[in-house]
Amino acid sequence: MKHYTTSRVITALLCTTTAALITGCGTDSSEPGANNTEPAAKAKHPFDTMASEQIDKQARESFRNTTSMRLTGKVSSNGQQVEIDLAIDVRGSCNGTVDNSLGTLHIIKKGSLVYAKAGEDYWRATFNRGMTVEQAEKMVGHFTDRWIKPPTLMAKTLGSFCDGFDSVLEILSAEPDGNATRENDATVDGRPTAVLTERTPTDTTTVYIAKEGKPYLLRATITGGNDPLDLTFTDHNKPVDTTPPPPDQILDPTTLR
């Protein structure tokens, strides 16, 4: 399991990202019509006969076919913690929220079209960088809690939250380096998972891989070190809802003087 805590991975996660794992696996069933009054022995899952590096390799191979997912949880980098709840796909579309020290930003992106909504603290911090206090407060009054269709430069900046999928795809689909270890199985939201862990002198990365249904990555954590994270992954391959807000709720900033 190539180490997930490189600055490249963290940057991609902060821009929103990541993954699902592994090829499909099934369990044996008893033969039809078998007359057996003894309880059937619990069938082993294919993972139970695999080395951790085999599971890791299959996970990466399956991940290459993942086209979308929803990420929920916390990511930290350079001392800043970001909470995300974001559906994202390989085309750079997204819908969800990113919450940092400035407040919560809700973003919808499809192609080059970006719509954003945030509270007054977020916009005040944005406009205070290049305006007088009076000018900034006027803009804050216009923007607060309204959907904005940003001009080109702002759209590119805000849209960058949705551009991390390909970077994580490249990183997590690389060949495993054989350093992962298999831990005791666990559950994530009631679903049984296989657990792989990688330890370094500074931190520990743990991934939880579904053992029922399609074996997707359901959770990843990094503890210790400077960039801890705790993310859950749902809605694998589910289309991202990029329906724009109603036109009467959208402010076009280019109409403001």
Rank of each mutant, 00 (worst) to 15 (best):
N35T: 14
V188M: 07
A51M: 05
P150A: 05
E183F: 01
E61Y: 06
A220D: 04
S52W: 04
K110R: 14
T37M: 13
R257K: 08
L21R: 11
K2H: 09
D56Y: 03
A12H: 08
E137M: 12
E137W: 08
Q54S: 09
N179M: 08
V98G: 04
V133A: 15
T23I: 10
F47Y: 11
R8V: 09
G164H: 06
K117S: 15
A194N: 06
A220S: 12
K156P: 00
D166W: 09
G73C: 05
M154R: 07
D166V: 13
H236D: 00
T17Y: 10
R146K: 15
F143S: 01
V75P: 00
F161D: 09
T144F: 08
S77V: 00
K238F: 00
V188S: 08
G24Y: 13
S93D: 14
P228K: 13
T200K: 14
L153C: 01
A51L: 10
T37C: 12
A220V: 04
T254Q: 09
E38H: 08
L71W: 02
T126L: 10
N184G: 11
P192A: 07
I148D: 00
E83S: 15
V207E: 08
F165T: 12
P151M: 07
A43Y: 02
N226E: 12
S76P: 00
S77C: 01
H3C: 12
H236A: 03
F233M: 08
Q249M: 12
L229R: 15
D235S: 12
L21D: 07
G33I: 04
G178R: 06
N128G: 07
R60C: 03
C94K: 04
M154P: 00
W147V: 01
K110D: 12
R124S: 15
L158H: 08
D89G: 01
S52C: 05
T17Q: 10
K110L: 02
T157H: 10
E134C: 02
T18K: 08
K238N: 03
R8K: 11
Q135R: 12
N36P: 00
L14Q: 14
T6A: 13
I107G: 03
L251D: 02
T242Y: 06
M50K: 05
I148C: 03
V140C: 03
N36A: 14
R182K: 09
A51N: 05
T223M: 01
T181H: 07
K117Q: 15
L229N: 02
N100P: 07
P176S: 08
Q80A: 09
G79K: 07
A40D: 14
N65E: 13
V207F: 02
Y4H: 13
Y216H: 15
M139H: 06
D252Y: 04
L172F: 09
T11S: 13
C162V: 05
A20Q: 11
Y115Q: 04
P247Y: 00
M131K: 14
D241P: 08
E61N: 09
S76E: 14
T221M: 04
G225Q: 03
P32A: 08
L86F: 10
P253T: 03
F161P: 01
